[in-house]
Nucleic acid binder design. Structure first.
Lengths: 213, 213
DNA sequence: ATTACTAGGTTCCGAGTAA
DNA sequence: TTTACTCGGAACCTAGTAA
């Protein structure tokens, strides 16, 4: 029965920030959620009766907090989805243009030496950029072993640290995903390194799909 | 509109394993989901019309596959929950008995030296076991910096590697969560190490609650 | 055995309105 | 201003049944 109102509960949780309280009104919530004020009023009562939220009515609105039971319900849903997506064993990405920074960074001795020690190969002096699904990428990488490459300094400038996840590229080539600590883009784009020049060896062009595992 | 049927879609995804197909029948699904055969039939049509599943009808049932759109919908929901729980900054745990193995492992020079180098303190020769929520623990740890302690060998036996996450115990003591590579329990229980004997110094007994941050 | 249409009952939503 | 009740109509579910 509470199964139906779970998306309503989720919406409240997003506004109330999981822990913490939400001071609002049924009118305002109705507007934000695209339903009537009456529906909000009724649903809040239902959730309260179900023990998933605490609410207190004041002359100028309602104040809402999620109960432990309410949080548990969302966490259960989260767990189910996690099980679903957690089994993600491969990641699909589309080859896209980098802007040459990869080449610059991968020419730095400070990085190359650490990569060689950690991965067992000397990386080619460039990176391959892949456009990926942000969530899928986060999940995929979370199942991989994470290594850390320390930052360092040269006379000219400072180079930051980066995370590094060994993976298999296109079921053929051992390589790694590299995520700089101070990364510009989110995980919409990931950078690959490998012992060879991937674009040539795997005959990749922009727009081609690559599978990581 | 498809927002209402998302739990139905999730149920299908769980049976079909996200990728992959589900061969079943409306009668069987109805039983498993606790609704009528007619409702299953109608909902499958709705989902098909919405483009979230592919279905093919055979004389002895239906075969169902999630479309990219369907997967994307679930992933979006997952992402929202991830944002909610990803902000998890503290983890609550209940002190429970270990079985002395912690003490044994934390007396091994091979581990102690690495911990000292990595964490900046020499750990007390024992661990504190906490009962925690499995999902909350996974989330909490995923936001912490992961370090790796290598396995090693002695004359007698082999010791496996373990992951290590620096954290703050009870808002006072710097310590770390330790997760052996070959762990017996899942994350229902986590092991803490610290430079001091936590049970005495923090006046902890079994059943007491501890906050990690 | 299937899926799925029709019909009737139940649930749910929202405009009006009381408090 | 609030919240929340009443009530008519829309949406939804299931039993019966056709294909």
């Amino acid at each position: 029965m509470a199964d139906k109102d779970i998306s309503f509960l989720l919406a409240l949780a997003q506004k109330a920030d999981l822990h913490g309280t939400l001071a609002s009104s049924t009118v305002q919530l109705a507007e934000e959620l695209g339903v009537s004020q009456q529906t909000v009023s009724r649903k809040l009562q239902d959730l309260f009766d179900a023990g998933t939220i605490d609410k207190s009515i004041t002359p100028n609105g309602v104040t809402i907090t999620l109960t432990e039971k309410g949080k548990a319900q969302l966490r259960a849903l989260y767990g189910e989805l996690q099980q679903l997506f957690g089994k993600q064993l491969v990641l699909h990405g589309i080859v896209k243009d980098g802007f040459g920074e990869g080449k610059f960074y991968m020419s730095q001795e400070g990085y190359i030496k650490q990569f060689a020690g950690l991965l067992g190969f000397t990386p080619y002096h460039g990176t391959l950029n892949l456009a990926v699904d942000k969530y899928a990428a986060a999940l995929f990488l979370s199942t991989k072993k994470q290594s850390y490459i320390s930052g360092f300094q040269t006379k000219e400038r400072t180079f930051g640290g980066l995370k590094c996840y060994p993976i298999l590229i296109a079921k053929k080539t051992a390589g790694a995903v590299v995520v700089p600590d101070r990364t510009a883009h989110t995980l919409d784009t990931i950078e690959l390194i490998a012992p060879i020049y991937l674009r040539d060896q795997l005959k990749l062009e922009n727009g081609k799909e690559v599978v990581l595992s």
